[in-house]
Amino acid sequence: MGVFENKFQDNVVVASLDKLLGWARSTSPWFFQFGLACCAIEMMATAASRHDLMRIGMIPRSSPRQADVMIVAGTVTLKMALRVKKLYEQMANPKYVISMGSCATSGGPYWQHGYHVLKGVDLVVPVDVYVPGCPPRPEALIEGLLKLQEKIQSERPLTRKTA
């Protein structure tokens, strides 16, 4: 509620519609658990007891229809790349993608001789936030999620986008 603290009195809420919608949309993104490799273990550790993801409003959902954010955690191989694209297309709008770890960002340590490794998941799906690390610490992933929340907050869904 940081946007609205100490600004009003006596039950009157005045806000721009964009900010209100941004607050509603950004503070409870449900994520699609797409753990592929080592980063998946750090994603599980972020969702577990010590660094609790649920306090930022994120719950793991296994079906793409119920999720807002897809966290691609781990190396994407060419065999898997076609499925990543299919699952991204199955998610309902508005949807966002976080690329977690250096393998999903750009191929990671396997960029040089990896004939079967996709050099970055942004070759198949559009990515919003990149979280570097191998694997990134849970705190780094949480920072990536907070940056995504800022990005969603600053979107203006009601204005018509000039093409």
Binding site: A37, G74, T77, P109, Q112, H113
Partner: peptide, 28 residues
Amino acid sequence: GYLHRCFEKHCENSTYEQVIPFTDRCDY
């Protein structure tokens, strides 16, 4: 095969010391 990351090909093209981080990532 959905996570085949060409570990053995990387080992043939790296020195013996450089193989160790690759072995880490196999059974993570």
